[in-house]
C-alpha cells in the first residue's frame, strides 16, 4: 500500500514563472518536484538542515521531425 505523502509543508517560488513549487514534507535528495503553474520540473540537489537546493531538471523536448 502506497504511503500517503504529506505535502504543502513548503512552497518555493518558481524561478521561471513566479508560481509555487510545492515541496513534500519528506522530500529527499534527487527527487523531482514541479511548479504548480508552469509545470517546470526541479531536481532536489541538496537537503541540509531543512534548507533545500533546487536545480531545473532535464526535460524532454517535443520533436515533430522539424
Amino acid at each position: 500500500m502506497a504511503k500517503e505523502r504529506k505535502i504543502g509543508e513548503k512552497k518555493l517560488e518558481c524561478q521561471i514563472c513566479g508560481g509555487k513549487v510545492t515541496i513534500p514534507a519528506d522530500v529527499m535528495e534527487s527527487e523531482i518536484v514541479s511548479c504548480d503553474d508552469c509545470g517546470l520540473e526541479y531536481e532536489i540537489s541538496g537537503v541540509n538542515n531543512g534548507t533545500l537546493q533546487l536545480k531545473p531538471a532535464d526535460s524532454i523536448k517535443e520533436d515533430w521531425g522539424e
Partner: peptide, 22 residues
C-alpha cells in the same frame, strides 16, 4: 505570467494552461 495572473485574478472560467512537461 504575472500579467496574465493579475488580469484574470479570481476569474473562475479562465485557466492558464501551460505545462512544460505536461
Amino acid at each position: 505570467w504575472n500579467l496574465f495572473r493579475d488580469f484574470y485574478k479570481e476569474k473562475r472560467f479562465i485557466r492558464l494552461m501551460m505545462d512544460k512537461n505536461g
